[in-house]
């Protein structure tokens, strides 16, 4: 498959009163055409910042892309002028935000907000745009679309608003869709509806999706590949099966173990002790070392390189070094669900 997006050695920092916060510290990623890549991690791991960098939405100041390239179809997005970036954003790459309550403009009708992009990017006339808007609302499963276009966001429920946000994102048939926690603010039954919708739409339009989430259930449901982020770095990446069934990084083990299982009863959850690192003063070695039950001296001093386990799976951990002791993953990672 062709690479649609390639992120090379991306560093993003924020200058704050407390000093420089290194939110993203050397991320390498690629997204192929038509696939869903999930970026998982806890708050502050740099997953949202990475995606915002792709969208050119890092506020400057305080934020800046210190280093690295973001190649989209071969052209470097970090080098584009603001004006040129506006031609990409919303047209080739678009975004679904987390909170449908705040990502829509309350003073504009829903129809107008969807038409905005169509008129600007696709140079459609008003009437054409309106027609397409009604079709889009129908596509995302909003009943009575011809009536609903004239309504305001407050007249929609949470789930319906998220459908509108998806319609806006899909308006110009983007090649890449970034979904930043698209279902976190929604209830489970509504989440199931939206995940279903996203999967159907991807099949129909063969859009690539970057899915940012902390919910491993959503990842298992939607993603083809997974990148696990911690402390501003990707510590493990692979296909969804590799990461869930054969994880190699202790952080991935911890993440999978700390989820309660729906079937069968476990006595105690395997919690990861401690809390994530402070990125204004990032650790020299592996960011997970202070919380890692298998940490060695070398982990504290040097960041490990990636070990290529298969064509698709890479993991950055000293345990994979041939000199390291053999450590078996805990039994508790036995992924949930299966009866």
């Amino acid at each position: 498959m062709d690479k649609l997006l390639e992120i090379k050695d991306l560093h993003v920092s924020f200058d704050t009163y407390g000093g420089e916060v290194k939110a993203v510290r050397g991320v390498n990623l690629d997204v192929k055409k038509g696939e869903t890549l999930a970026i998982v991690g806890e708050s502050g791991s740099g997953k949202s910042v990475t995606s915002k960098a792709v969208m050119g939405l890092i506020p400057n100041p305080p934020g800046r892309i210190k280093q690295g390239e973001i190649l989209f179809n071969g052209k470097d997005l970090t080098k584009l002028s603001d004006r040129k970036m506006q031609g990409v954003r919303g047209k080739d790459i678009s975004m679904i935000f987390q909170d449908p309550m705040t990502s829509l403009n309350p003073t504009m009708t829903v129809g107008k907000q969807i038409m905005e992009g169509l008129i600007k990017h696709q140079k459609l006339s008003r009437s054409e745009a309106r027609e397409r808007t009604v079709k889009l609302l129908d596509l995302v499963g909003i009943p009575n679309p011809d009536k609903r276009v004239k309504q305001y966001p407050h007249q929609f429920s949470g789930g319906m608003r998220q459908r509108v946000v998806i319609a806006i994102a899909l308006a110009c048939n983007p090649m890449l869709l970034i979904a930043d926690e698209p279902t976190t603010a929604l209830d489970v039954t509504i989440q199931a509806q939206i995940l279903d919708l996203m999967r159907d739409l991807q099949k129909q339009m063969s859009t690539s999706i970057i899915l940012i989430t902390h919910d491993l259930g959503v990842v298992a449901n939607l993603a083809h590949r997974v990148a696990v982020m911690y402390g501003g770095k990707i510590i493990e990446t692979g296909t969804v099966d590799e990461v869930f069934y054969k994880p190699k990084h202790p952080y991935t083990w911890g993440l999978l173990s700390s989820m309660p299982k729906l079937h069968g009863k476990s006595e105690e959850l395997l919690a990861i002790p401690g809390s994530p690192p402070d990125l204004s003063n990032p650790p020299k070695g592996c960011p997970f070392a202070p919380r890692c039950p298998h940490a060695m001296q070398v982990c504290i001093e040097h960041m490990p390189d990636y070990t290529e386990l298969t064509d698709t799976q890479k993991s950055a951990c000293w345990l994979l070094d041939e000199r390291a002791p053999k450590v078996e993953p805990p039994e508790t990672i036995g992924v949930g669900g299966s009866k």
Binding site: S157, G158, G159, M160, D187, V188, T189, I190, Q191, A192, Q193, L195, D196, D215, L216, G217, V218, V219, A220, N221, V240, D241, F244, Y245, L256, M259, L262, V335, G336, G337, S338
Partner: peptide
């Protein structure tokens, strides 16, 4: 409706998806 952190289960699962909102 709960997504389970297990890709195989997710692939094979039949969901009851409720229509509409509360």
């Amino acid at each position: 409706a709960i997504p389970v952190p297990d890709p195989n289960v997710e692939r094979s699962r039949e969901r009851i998806i409720l229509e509409g909102d509360v």
